[in-house]
């Protein structure tokens, strides 16, 4: 069953009551949402995702409920609280930011699930069966670039957190809405007029946020991961021409460990998995000022590499 198969009233009731189990890629999340407006935002963003309403096995539990103040009374001004595995997570927040906080709660669950994956602060997209990983610090433009690629012939595997299955250098697909900030929202809307977005959330600590919804194809193919063939560290610089620099493998390997949330907990299996990934990948640093140009360059490079591999 998909979210959209439930009538809005029915979905709202179930979310306020026993909750649903939402499937995103390899994860099943038991979810309870008390706020009707949050339930509507969630339903709009996740319409094509599979759920079960009956009791089922799940990896995480996430609840967004009315915050409680002193003596267990409801908090003032309708503040809300996220709870993960039953415990309060993050500070209480205004109801207007409930949907972005729900996405943060999902990310938190995945980032702290340390046992099965090496998790990177990165984005990943796939084309022709092989993945491109975009790594780098916040603000380097990787989400914007992943969003643009996901609307230009590439399939979104995941944004914000990239999961590499321990033991095999395969990236697990976990396509969820991409968080875009400030000018990036307009840039992607102009690049892909048919793209679908969440409402805009203004005045957050990161400025204005809107979530680009993954394409239906990306959601439908969430069971299919991909092995990476290229890792790129992008750096957006206004007005800069597109410039690509090769990185040697040891540098690429080190950058990946630096961008991992949990590499140092994965020990030898993590080292060996990352070595295999590094063996199979080319590493580049990309400076770009024009998004369309960057998309074209990466697509050309990826397709040429795929053609080279096919010929070899």
């Amino acid at each position: 069953m998909l979210i959209r198969d439930l009538a809005p009233d029915q979905l709202g009731r179930v979310l306020r009551g026993p909750g649903i189990t939402l499937e995103t890629g390899p994860f099943a999340t038991r979810l309870r949402l008390e706020s009707p407006s949050l339930a509507r935002s969630f339903a709009a963003a996740y319409a094509a995702y599979p759920i079960t309403t009956s009791p089922s096995l799940y990896d995480f539990t996430v609840e967004l409920t009315r915050a409680r103040g002193r003596f267990g009374l409801p908090a003032r001004r309708g503040a809300m609280q996220a709870r993960i595995a039953g415990a309060a997570a993050f500070d209480p927040f205004p109801p207007a930011y409930a949907y972005p906080m729900l996405e943060s709660a999902f990310n938190w669950c995945i980032a702290t699930d340390l046992l099965r994956y090496i998790t990177f602060h990165a984005a990943a997209v796939e084309r022709g069966g092989r993945a491109l990983v975009l790594t780098g610090p916040s603000g380097s433009g990787k989400s914007t670039l992943a969003a643009a690629l996901s609307q230009s012939g590439w399939r979104l595997l995941s944004d914000e957190l990239v999961l590499l299955r321990l033991g095999t250098p395969e990236i697990v697909a976990n396509p969820r809405p991409i968080s875009l900030k400030n000018q990036a929202i307009e840039i992607i809307a102009a690049l892909a007029p048919d793209a679908r977005f969440s409402p805009r959330y203004e005045g957050t600590i990161k400025g204005t946020i809107s979530f680009l919804l993954p394409t239906p194809e990306a959601v439908a193919q969430a069971a299919r991961g991909a092995r990476p063939s290229m890792v790129v560290a992008p750096a957006f610089q206004a007005g800069a021409p597109c410039a690509l620099e090769d990185l040697d493998k040891a540098t690429g390997f080190t950058r990946l460990t630096e961008n991992s949330v949990n590499y140092f907990s994965t020990l030898k299996p993590g080292f060996e998995t990352l070595v295999r990934l590094t063996d199979e990948c080319r590493f580049h640093a990309l400076t770009y000022g024009d998004l369309r140009e960057a998309v074209e360059l990466l697509t050309r490079l990826h397709d040429a590499g795929a053609a080279g591999n096919a010929a070899a």
């Binding site: 040697d248 493998k249 040891a250 390997f253 080190t254 460990t257 590499y263 140092f264 020990l267 030898k268 080292f271 060996e272 070595v275 590094t278 063996d279």
Partner: peptide, 22 residues
């Protein structure tokens, strides 16, 4: 120890410390 050599560098994993070195 586990290691791999690429081009002009080695990466080495030391299981005793859990550290990775270049």
């Amino acid at each position: 120890l586990s290691w791999r050599q690429w081009d002009g560098d080695y990466v080495v994993f030391n299981p005793a410390s859990g550290d990775t070195h270049v």
